[in-house]
Design a protein around this nucleic acid. Structure first.
Lengths: 344, 344
DNA sequence: CTGTTAGCGCGTTCAA
DNA sequence: TTGAACGCGCTAACAG
């Protein structure tokens, strides 16, 4: 056997074994090799065996790039994520990757910081790389991004994110109802002045969903809405920690918080100021991440099946990539509410 | 202009614009288009301009797959990670991705759960996809994986992980010295019986590095080593939480912990048992992740530049992919120690 | 059941 | 400065 040799008979550097080498060694055509590699049943068991032996002996590994060019499918999907470092998103990502692996896909993960410009940049390189599908995570879809999404023939799913325009396929929970349930708990304990603490209100998830839920329950319970009780800040722990004085002056006796780290900040900020939680002040949060159980008292929280949202998104995407018919454009997963020690 | 039309003159579904379309529209050869796309200077400014206009008008986007096949470079690197959900690793991943983006690379992220079998599986699909390089994160390199690594012509770097065999390029801190410093603090406060709490001791980072550092300081300070004070468990919060009784019976008055979640568990477990931290018991931990500041009292910790470790790893990898000479196979980044309230 | 033949879209000589 | 032609490694008809 002499393969990949140059004129001087020396083994060359890039010793890549191709389907052609296998074909020659097994004394069949490359088409046949391709068939056994792709599990095509139209191959006589004997030849299949022979080919497999050669593949094994030569340690042949099909070149996915060539395959992608020929078949126009790369078996990789692009995942746009604001920040892997954020447990909320990484949980989704984990669900995505597991299901992707299950269906023989790989994911290209790209951080966007929720920055519109980066998102577009990333989308373009993803499309250039011919990904078979895209999963988008983020809290705000810019107009330009929306245009690109709609123009693209590549299937796209939003995971744990909402499209207020309701055009794109997405997987998430019923945020409005979830918030209503969480705040109901607070109201049932007699709280009348409940702070609404969230990230930027220009993000639909905060303004169109959570805040709406907040207003809904208040209305249902005959409590007047006051914008003084609405606190817009960023998602960090520190932002919550320094918020306490403002909460006090607003006269709130409880708070709904849209993010766990933020909630941990509020909790510790209150306690550092000598407040008893939940006796003097109650708190509910939104994502049930690990820190809800690490802080003391443990935080009552809305629960979201984050891993599942990611998993279902990816499953959804496989259907689209497979051109299967999907009935509903948006799938809503069940949420829950877990009562811990930050509420009475 | 009539491109991508079928016999009936209808625009076809897959309206992919190729370099060929651009060439025809600009009345040049595809070679020339290729040149301007790749920034080859040997193009007359006038033609370059003309081509760029057409590219813009047609919204042409070079097919990275075809490019990869022709050039044998995919500008994507594979990243093997135990679990994205773990902040320690996702911080590294973030650093990797940022630098990758900076150098026009994308990353394929694959979770391994630190499972030897999955790691090998993942490595193979990564190689099949012709990634230009690989970054490995994990606590234990199985023999088979090591063989595959060494046989592969694809550059590989370990990020935030150690290779006790010292064969592979890697980026990390001096774990031994860091542990020594952290424990010195404990010893300086008069502690004689210090618990060593870590993840699996079959992981070199725990047995070969951290435990060695532990033994070193003890020896330096004339304290006898006792295996009764060594606690091997897994990395979870819960594992730490239930460990307290065992720690008590061992008579420890302080503890070094190899993982933050684990440390948070130990901390809360102790406090739930009525112990005063740090008055009655001191704790230091290892990774300075966010939770060290969220728990009360806040945890004193070794600090590692996680983001930087990821970033430097990727930078390192770009050099290897670029076949540049690298002096040192392993780069050691500076660690630190931050004193908070879990120590006196 | 198997082989032949075209491309897939682009990079890259080699001439011109 | 430009173009023609070949090949990257593989899939997908189409024959046989």
């Amino acid at each position: 056997m002499k393969m990949n040799e140059n004129k001087k008979g020396l083994i060359m550097e890039k010793q890549t074994i191709t389907i052609y080498d296998v074909a020659r060694e097994a004394a069949v055509s490359m088409a046949t090799v391709s068939r056994v590699v792709n599990g095509n049943p139209n191959v006589k068991p004997a030849t299949r065996k022979k080919v497999l032996e050669v593949i094994d002996r030569l340690d042949y590994r099909p070149n996915a790039v060539a395959r992608g060019l020929a078949s126009k499918k790369t078996t990789t999907v692009g995942v746009i994520i604001p920040d892997v470092t954020n447990v909320y998103f990484s949980s989704l990502a984990r669900g995505i990757d597991d299901v992707a692996t299950m269906y023989k896909y790989n994911i290209i993960l790209a951080n966007s910081d929720g920055n519109a410009q980066k998102e577009i940049q990333v989308l373009n390189t993803l499309l250039a790389k011919q990904v078979d599908g895209i999963i988008y995570m983020g809290n705000k879809i810019s107009d330009e991004l929306r245009v690109q999404f709609e123009r693209s023939k590549t299937p796209i799913i939003l995971a744990g994110s909402v499209d207020d325009k309701e055009k794109l396929g997405s997987v998430h929970i019923d945020y409005v109802a979830a918030v209503e349930e969480a705040i109901s708990d607070l109201i049932n304990h007699g709280n009348k002045k409940i702070a609404f603490i969230s990230g930027p209100l220009n993000e639909p998830i905060n303004s169109e969903y959570r805040l709406k839920g907040y207003k809904n329950v208040l209305a249902k319970n005959g409590i007047e809405f006051s914008s003084d009780l609405v606190f817009e800040t960023d998602y960090s722990y520190h932002a919550g920690e320094i918020l306490w004085p403002a909460i006090v002056s607003a006269g709130a006796t409880a708070a709904f918080v849209g993010d766990d780290e933020l909630a941990a900040g509020v909790l510790n900020g209150a306690q550092d100021a000598g407040v008893e939680v939940p006796a003097d002040f109650e708190i509910v949060t939104s994502n049930n991440s690990k820190i809800t159980e690490i802080v003391r008292p443990k935080l009552s929280s809305i629960t979201q099946p984050l891993y599942d949202i990611g998993a279902v998104s990816m499953r959804f995407l496989t259907k689209l990539m497979n051109k299967e018919d999907v009935i509903e454009k948006t799938v809503e997963l069940p949420y829950g509410y877990i009562k811990r020690s930050s509420t009475k």
